[in-house]
Amino acid sequence: MNNNNQRSALATYNHITYLLYILSYFTAGLLWIVPIFMNYAKRREADGTWLATHFDWQIKTFWYSIVWFVVGIGIITFALGSFGVSMMADSGNIAVGSVLLASLGFIIMGVTFIWHLYRIVRGWIALADSRPVP
């Protein structure tokens, strides 16, 4: 396969991975893992081309999203445990702190969701314009 055909095939492949990331929002995240495997499988074929930036962009987006999502879930889990303790101890102060901490966890998860969606849309637009992403 010549370079132009390979680049065209990799661009199509990237369109599919961006699409799968978007579709994952409608499948409760079940499709979220598929494009990351796809990106790792073809990443080296894009080395030295502008398409390599799209593979790296999607991989970084995935991992940073996972980390921040887990941080948010961890904070919420800790806060809910503290809330249960506050109910048993009949402590209103701990309950308020637990609710505020859980709110922080939900904010982190919400910002992560928006950031992930922004990066997928921004990357897909750049791919459609045949441009690399930063």
Rank of each mutant, 00 (worst) to 15 (best):
M1W: 07
N2R: 01
N4C: 06
A11I: 10
I16N: 01
T17K: 09
T17I: 09
Y18E: 05
L20V: 04
I22M: 04
L23Y: 10
Y25I: 01
F26D: 08
T27M: 07
A28T: 05
A28Q: 04
P35W: 00
P35H: 01
P35G: 00
I36R: 02
N39R: 14
Y40S: 03
A46V: 15
D47N: 14
D47K: 14
G48S: 14
G48W: 13
L51E: 07
A52S: 15
T53N: 13
H54A: 06
D56V: 02
D56R: 07
Q58E: 10
Q58V: 05
K60L: 12
F62S: 09
V67F: 09
W68D: 03
V70T: 08
T77V: 03
A79R: 05
A79C: 11
L80G: 00
S82I: 03
G84E: 06
V85N: 11
S86Q: 07
S86H: 06
S86V: 06
M87C: 03
M87L: 10
M88E: 13
M88D: 13
M88H: 09
M88K: 08
A89W: 10
D90V: 13
V96Y: 09
L100T: 13
L100G: 14
L100M: 15
L104H: 03
G105H: 12
L117C: 07
V121G: 07
G123L: 05
A126I: 04
D129H: 08
S130G: 11
P132V: 03
